[in-house]
Simulated scan of single mutants.
Amino acid sequence: MVRLNPYLNFKGEAREALEFYRSALGGEVEIMTYGSMPGMSDDPAEQDLVMHGQLETEHGLVLMAADTPSSMPDATPTTGVTVALTGSEADLDYVRTAVTALSAGATDVLPFEKAPWGDHFGQLTDRYGVPWMFDVGPA
């Protein structure tokens, strides 16, 4: 099965961000550090940074993240990329709970509420600068 998953890049905040997303979405976080993979970074200050992290939820959501090391160009969240969490009416409570949790420290918040086209819709930029969009419509 082919899957498309968001992969977010951070500057030293990937572990913290993944734990924040786990608290909002549920699931389990797995982390590999630069120090656990020989040759990935020779900088002693970067050994505990996240080379690859993954959050996988019981709902089948997968969100990946890493810290960009000093040897690579900065690839932190950018304009034009949005993480979308969508579902059907059966998912409304889960998405509403996630929106509430992700709203802590968020900016540019468009409240998650019934939209003119009938879906529940909302948007925000989380505390890490990652834009999110939420949409729950009929099955």
Results as ranks from 00 to 15, higher is better:
residue 111 P to F: 03
residue 2 V to Q: 13
residue 118 G to Q: 05
residue 122 G to D: 07
residue 33 T to S: 10
residue 97 T to G: 13
residue 92 L to D: 06
residue 14 A to K: 03
residue 110 L to H: 11
residue 11 K to H: 12
residue 131 P to K: 10
residue 94 Y to D: 11
residue 60 G to L: 04
residue 57 T to V: 10
residue 42 D to S: 15
residue 110 L to N: 13
residue 97 T to M: 08
residue 121 F to R: 10
residue 40 M to P: 02
residue 61 L to R: 00
residue 32 M to A: 14
residue 110 L to W: 08
residue 58 E to P: 05
residue 22 R to W: 06
residue 27 G to D: 00
residue 9 N to A: 14
residue 42 D to P: 06
residue 113 E to D: 14
residue 15 R to S: 13
residue 103 S to I: 08
residue 51 M to G: 07
residue 80 G to S: 05
residue 19 E to D: 14
residue 50 V to S: 07
residue 109 V to N: 08
residue 17 A to D: 09
residue 128 Y to E: 02
residue 37 M to W: 12
residue 105 G to C: 02
residue 125 T to G: 07
residue 121 F to D: 10
residue 97 T to H: 11
residue 114 K to T: 14
residue 50 V to D: 09
residue 99 V to L: 03
residue 71 S to I: 10
residue 63 L to V: 12
residue 8 L to M: 09
residue 134 F to N: 09
residue 33 T to D: 01
residue 130 V to N: 03
residue 132 W to L: 07
residue 22 R to P: 07
residue 114 K to D: 10
residue 27 G to C: 04
residue 115 A to M: 12
residue 19 E to I: 07
residue 11 K to R: 15
residue 37 M to E: 09
residue 106 A to T: 05
residue 99 V to N: 00
residue 49 L to F: 14
residue 91 D to Y: 01
residue 44 P to K: 08
residue 9 N to P: 02
